[in-house]
Design a protein around this nucleic acid. Sequence first.
DNA 1: GATGTAGGTGCCCTTACGTCA
DNA 2: CCTGACGTAAGGGCACCTACA
Length: 276
Amino acid sequence: MMMRKEDLGLSLSLGLSQDHTPLQLIQNPNSSISNNLQRFPWNQTFASTSDLGKIDVNSLPTTVDCEEEPGVSSPNSTISSTISGGKRSEREGISEHDDITPDRGYSRGTSDEEEDGGETSRKKLRLSKDQSAFLEETFKEHNTLNPKQKLALAKKLNLTARQVEVWFQNRRARTKLKQTEVDCEYLKRCVEKLTEENRRLQKEAMELRTLKLSPQFYGQMTPPTTLIMCPSCERVAGPSSNHQHNHRPVPINPWVACAAGQVAHGLNFEALRPRS
DNA sequence: GATGTAGGTGCCCTTACGTCA
DNA sequence: CCTGACGTAAGGGCACCTACA
């Protein structure tokens, strides 16, 4: 069964901030696992895998040998190389040998289908629904894992640490892509607004020039649009604004306000900003 | 203290595979 | 059954950081 975006229940709370705002994950009510998943307590090992029901891991060989060790939590500890499962081939070379079952997961298939000539054919392992769901839950809390967490999660899900690592990496990439798409839409709407405002201002300027050429009307016209900014709250308002602060407003360059996403002459980019 | 090296990790790009219409 | 599109697991390269000699 293909997992689609809707299945992930992914929705993003967005801003333009760089710090990846945590995903607002809406658990798919159809997901059978959603109610069974307990929050993973990062300070302790995973409990049993019983709550995960069936984990097939595509017949992945089982145990990732991952005894908890006090020093494991350090990202730079030597054991992290062991548990990372080897990101690169050289990493693989130094990792998971001997007592760690030949999961190596990356390019292997099930025992009955492999050995096709020893080619470098990488059989792709599909994670089970339960595994994906639990990884999603975990990602909601931490979008990165330290080696200890990675190891514990791998053990709980009966995956290799490398698989967990890859999953998180790909998940971060998907999040970023999604964020980029939404940001792009937001910026497009900003451009539309600005284009529209530009047209309006050019038209207004044209009218002013016309009036200036007609001195008999010059004294009767209403003043052109003036933007003022409250130095206290730094909000921009037009001359008719009923701003209540009792200090002198400071005229500003409206484009500065636009760039800052302020309310300038009816331009409110906050309103364009995508909501989660 | 400055420098070089090795190990670990994240991000990016890409490939290969599974699934679906 | 075939095929193209799409999603995703995984490989490889690179940059960066940290520990250590």
